[in-house]
């Protein structure tokens, strides 16, 4: 009896396996999932209210597509349009170029809006949608560097793809969390550079130089009455986000310990801000 039961179960299992194999083979043969590859693979754009930017984007189809429609999800439609919005057909491997226009109204709220740009073939969505992040902030303009992810944690220096002295992950954090004040963002960027510089400093001289810049950044925030917002703390905590960076911070502390750092003299508090305050809107 036991032998019979084992036999029946074995036959059943074999039948299930064969069935699954035949099903998957049939799906492969008749309905390959349509895919596209976007370039760039993500978009994070900063825009000021009342401005307009045209950003070229493109995608390449992995299969032949027809009745192709490019659409913006509703969450982004007040900010983003695309042109063209359709292609009669696209051949496998063909590059399709689209202009993405970011044009927030003058009354647009300072905020971060996330969504996607989708491609449909007929009524079916083609994977994958393009992730889009639009940051509306005063005085902002241009694309943010892409999120470096874990790759940005591989070294002390991290990734600074636009070579502006601010690590990409920190630059994105500042842009996204402080949309309301260009002066605040600029000061935080100065602080981020100085903090990162401290992690990389090899000599006492180098350490003191960047430490002075760090001190001035804080005094600038004090002058702008922004210290209590604590954003500077977030920037520093984010900058020291790996064990190696934590050890580098401790080493930097040792290098500058025992030193004296000057406050800006009375009546010259404004001099703590190392950028042109008048050039920024707020």
């Amino acid at each position: 009896m036991k032998r019979l039961l084992a036999y029946v179960l074995s036959v059943f299992a074999l039948a299930v396996c064969v069935g699954l194999f035949l099903y998957s083979s049939s799906a492969d043969a008749t309905q390959l999932p349509a895919t596209i590859t976007w370039s760039p693979s993500t978009i994070a754009d900063i825009a000021s209210p009342g401005t307009r930017q045209n950003i070229p984007i493109s995608f390449t189809a992995a299969t032949n597509l027809s009745n192709v429609v490019v659409s913006v999800v509703p969450a982004l439609q007040a900010l983003v349009t695309v042109n063209p919005t359709s292609f009669p057909s696209l051949q496998k491997g063909q590059l399709a170029t689209v202009t993405m226009t970011v044009a927030p109204a003058a009354t647009a709220t300072l905020a971060v809006t996330e969504g996607t740009i989708r491609v449909l073939a007929g009524t079916a969505t083609v994977a994958k949608p393009l992730p889009v992040q639009i940051i509306i902030e005063t005085g902002g303009n241009g694309l943010l560097p892409p999120d470096p992810g874990e790759a940005g944690k591989a070294t002390i220096e991290g990734i600074d793809s636009d070579h502006d002295g601010v690590r990409d992950d920190v630059e994105r954090y500042i842009a996204i969390t402080v949309p309301e004040s260009a002066k605040h963002r600029e000061t935080l960027r100065s602080l981020a550079k100085a903090t990162q510089g401290g992690l990389s400093a090899q000599t006492r001289g180098e350490a003191l130089q960047v430490a002075n810049a760090e001190s001035l950044s804080i005094q600038c925030l004090g002058y702008l009455d922004l210290l209590d917002q604590d954003r500077w703390k977030e920037v520093q905590a984010l900058t020291v986000n790996t064990e190696v960076r934590l050890q580098a911070l401790a080493a930097h502390n040792d290098l500058i310990s025992g030193s004296v750092f000057h406050g800006v003299p009375p009546g010259q508090e404004r001099a703590a801000c190392l950028f042109n305050l008048e050039s920024l809107p707020n």
């Binding site: 430490a211 001190s215 064990e243 934590l246 050890q247 911070l249 401790a250 080493a251 930097h252 502390n253 040792d254 500058i256 310990s257 025992g258 030193s259 004296v260 750092f261 000057h262 406050g263 003299p265 009375p266 009546g267």
Partner: peptide, 28 residues
Amino acid sequence: QYAVTCFDVAYNHSLGKYNSGDIWETAR
């Protein structure tokens, strides 16, 4: 009075010299 007064920081280490791997390890 304020016009004739400067303010500075005398910075003392509080990470590094006194810290130890024990603290990092326990924090981890």
